[in-house]
Design a protein around this nucleic acid. Structure first.
Lengths: 213, 213
DNA sequence: ATGTGTGAAAAGGTTCACAGCC
DNA sequence: GGCTGTGAACCTTTTCACACAT
């Protein structure tokens, strides 16, 4: 509980956490810095320095104890509680998110799902019953939700974001491709698959131009 | 067409590109480095240095010309062609991805959709007819696809990845939460919303612990 | 042998400060 | 006034090299 960790470090720790959790599910026991590096795209030396920095040690010639590593990282990051999430949009995308196993595995629970389409209200997606968007503020307050997910058509996204801000949501995951305008104390994260594609394709096409050997 | 740009730079350029394209859609004409910084989370000074590095200039007191900026970045990154994509999984998630506007806007076309569920074959998602997964290799070769998206249930993901590798797909976008094991010349990108959440929540909860004023 | 731990050097990013053009 | 352009100091990350434990 000492001073705040650096942004880069915490970001990398979350990556180690996800990879290690998955490897544990595959039945793995010990994990090397090289493996963590391969799966996260982070340099193995950096991995070792990071784990060292949070006071976690491996055994030479073997690697790091997977289960202990997960516990160490979770306790350092303070990720021991679960967070309730408000999801807006009960279409294909919203349904997919609500039934995904990714969120619950990391301590996130889709606690409420909202839509403005009367035909969807009352249906069940994932484990929850879809409510009308008008109930958002009340539900968010009741379930103490600080995270919201926008999975609506693009044209509704800004309006939904404003409702969320009004309801004191602090972090918004935006699955649409519109730029949301919100106060600066609200964190926006856009899920944009093209970001990674563009970056990767640049190197792929570069490499093709250099066929010389 | 000179030497390869640094990874960090290309990565940031894609962010400027996305934000600028969106602002243009909102009718904007000129954009300041501060705005680009706010929407991308990148330091404004860094933004100016980056644009300078690719030889793009703004006008003092005004900012950067949005349309020209998009063109400059696209030509530097070589993102002028369109790429055909093979999408596997025609459930809720696959349908959502196939009908999303994000990909086409950036030059990506969902050209083929596959599933192994007979009841889905022949249906239309987005603009394309769902084919049986057995046709993947042939379709990928015909449409020259080097990008694949996995939007299946988790238990099929590894098998699909292997089919894609077999079909010479080079870049895989993985929407499931399994760790895919593939040869190292294949790029895997996992769409994981929790990465950003965990990182953000760490700072949010830290801040709460420091209520001192 | 294999994989951690760590010093030292180099590269990349961030921040401050300020000059210069609209 | 507003915002770009850039030098200089500083911090973070990457990489090389090698000692050391199992």
């Amino acid at each position: 509980m000492r001073s705040t960790l650096q942004p880069g470090l915490t970001n990398r720790l979350t990556k180690y956490l996800r990879v290690t959790q998955q490897l544990i599910e595959e039945g793995r026991d010990a994990i090397s810095s090289k493996e963590l590096g391969d799966f996260t795209g982070i340099n193995p030396v950096q991995v070792r320095r990071d784990l060292n920095a949070i006071g976690f040690s491996g055994t030479r010639g073997v690697g790091y104890q997977a289960y202990d590593l997960v516990e160490a990282v979770r306790s350092i990051l303070g990720l021991r509680q679960t967070y309730n999430i408000a999801l807006v949009g009960a279409g294909n995308l919203g349904s997919a998110i609500a039934s995904s196993t990714i969120l619950p595995k990391r301590g996130f629970v889709i606690h409420d799902v909202f839509d403005n389409d009367a035909s969807k209200i009352g249906r069940t997606v994932g484990n929850v019953v879809v409510k009308h968007i008008d109930e958002l503020e009340k539900s968010v307050a009741e379930a103490d939700e600080i995270i919201g997910i926008i999975a609506t058509p693009a044209h509704s996204a800004q309006a939904v974001a404003e409702l969320m801000v009004e309801a004191e949501i602090r972090v918004i995951l935006n699955y649409t491709d519109v730029l949301l305008h919100v106060p600066s104390d609200v964190d926006i994260h856009r899920i944009d698959p093209t970001a990674q594609l563009m970056h990767t394709l640049y190197y792929l096409t570069q490499a093709e131009g250099e066929e010389a050997s």
